[in-house]
Write a protein that binds this DNA or RNA. Structure first.
Lengths: 222, 222
DNA sequence: GTCTATAATGAGATAGAC
DNA sequence: GTCTATCTCATTATAGAC
């Protein structure tokens, strides 16, 4: 292969990547807003400005597009979730990590991406939440549940910080925390509406403060 | 109109009602499992055993079927939610109702219908939860949010029971409670999976106990 | 009220020229 | 890699006989 051909191939790969990302960005937004079945490849094509046939060329099928959307940010998101946890582990060593620090370590990376890292991350986190209710019908075609190991690690740390709590009670408490975070990711405006605007689910600092103060009360030792 | 004609008309109305309910039952189940867009009228027709054209005759459109499903149990559900609250109001009179009683008054009617009143109610409550994430795309064609006044009444009672709590904090706490209940209605098995079966989200007594003990801790006066 | 048949639209997916 | 054109199928919805 000549030098010219190599340059051409590089340019093509670059353009291919850009096209793929245009598709994924549009799909991410629409899937997260209207669900998998509420979104057609025509919608994605229209929003992305990329011809429909290219979606098939690059991904194969609608389900494959969803899978690609899910996969694109999965590793980065997992890393972001574990980073503060590991930092705390290092900081506290053998000592247990305080409960409110654990709550923040869990909630902040998620809510931060949802609220202050741009539309891409906002759509991605919303989609992840949305998929919890759609996944039953989507699997096994699409692999969605990628964060179970992360939850396991968080549970282990909560356990260490609350040695006297009984196991089921602790599981329920962490589940309630997860439910609340997941619900916020859906952007249902439930708390904003309920409080007639007094509470702002779009305010990261407020969200983290409220999560910490409420759930650390529930997660105290008896 | 002769007596014979009247009898015939009665029988027809009866049959008509049965057909409608067959359709609504199937729609309730499928919408609640796969969402509005994940369900076709063909699916509903197949599951109910009623011809597709009859769905149009009785309701008009797919959206109208959803609306009818939502409406069918709405009043009964509202009543069921307010009944224990009003009973407590009567019982305690001017005294504030204890917080854990309020939590139970809110959660039990919902979770009871979800877990121990048969498949119809189970599907209905699951659908209501599901619609929180789909409603943005469905409105204004379908009117879904029918429980805001109920929440208002509950908030007022929580307020009375916790006169020193600040308003936003109270709103957030009640919102976290609602999130957890809503998530359980979706039957995602999150807590069952997370705890490897140690916790059972299908056990009504367990669910109520855990909700009360956890959320009453978070809802204490400072 | 119920049935069959069918219209009309939109969906996912593919073929083949460039 | 990109485009146009098209296929095939499922969907919502309607018309008209009984």
């Amino acid at each position: 292969m000549g030098a010219n051909a190599q340059i051409k191939e590089r340019a093509n790969q670059q353009r291919s990547l850009e096209t793929k990302n245009k598709i994924l960005n549009a799909a991410e937004e629409l899937f997260s807003l209207h669900g998998f079945y509420g979104t057609s490849l025509r919608d994605i094509s229209a929003l992305s400005g990329v011809r429909m046939s290219l979606c098939y060329y690059h991904f194969g099928s609608k389900e494959d597009v969803l899978q690609a959307v899910v996969d694109r940010r999965a590793d980065a998101h997992q890393q972001a979730l574990l980073e503060p946890l590991n930092a705390y582990k290092e900081q506290f060593g053998d000592q247990p990590i305080p409960v409110d620090a654990l709550i923040e370590a869990y909630a902040r990376p998620i809510m931060e991406r949802h609220l202050s890292c741009g539309n891409g991350w906002r759509n991605y986190t919303r989609l992840m939440a949305h998929l919890y209710s759609e996944s039953a019908h989507l699997e096994p075609k699409v692999q969605v549940h990628k964060y179970d190991p992360v939850i396991k690690q968080f549970f282990a740390e909560f356990r260490r910080s609350m040695p006297h709590a009984n196991e089921p009670e602790l599981h329920w408490a962490i589940y309630f925390l997860r439910s609340s975070v997941i619900n916020m990711l859906l952007d249902t405006q439930l708390v904003d509406d309920q409080s007639a605007g007094l509470c702002d689910s779009g305010d990261l600092a407020q969200v983290i403060t409220r999560l910490k103060s409420f759930f650390s009360k529930g997660l105290q030792e008896p």
